[in-house]
Amino acid sequence: MSVKIGVLALQGAVSEHVHSLEVSGAETALVKNARDLDGLDGLVLPGGESTMMRRIMDRYDLFEAVKNFAEQKPVFGTCAGLILMAKQIEGRRGPHLALLDIDVKRNAFGRQVDSFEADLEIKGISETYIGVFIRAPYIKSAAENVDVLATCEGHIVACRQGRFLACAFHPELTDDPAMHRYFVRMVEEYH
């Protein structure tokens, strides 16, 4: 039986993640309320605006529900999702979900005119992957127990720590399902 993976659907590139997950063999569900997490095996935090997502999560008890979910189930964050998962965010007082032992910098590559595509090598996932970076963050530093999966111009842009996977780029904007396939396998392992 296939695993069921939710996509946080407050705002952002939700339908693209749903498509990539389904292509990779998972069932999907949209998560807008705490009750939508029931019965899910994993969760994707999509690209979008992290400040907006956090505000909505706070207003409707979704924040604690997602945090509790992450205590047992795998989570994959892309771009804004990576920021939501980090334990330290440059220039911000506290973290959001604080799942990954990493220190991130928001909009680290600059504004939209500096957004770019780059060829990446992602350890154990793909040797030729196109990373789409949009006002992207990067990981300034990662604890020793965090597995660095990819770097770009000397900065960490993808990592895994146990059941948590995160990247600064947008795998949901390409036709290459390698990252999603990898996450679906992770979810199957924890299932």
């Binding site: 952002g12 605006e49 595509e117 390409t174």
Partner: peptide, 20 residues
Amino acid sequence: MVVQKGTERVKRGMAEMQKG
């Protein structure tokens, strides 16, 4: 490493991030 700015995917993708 090949880096390209201002591609169609990067421009349209920025709007995808605004959805909803």
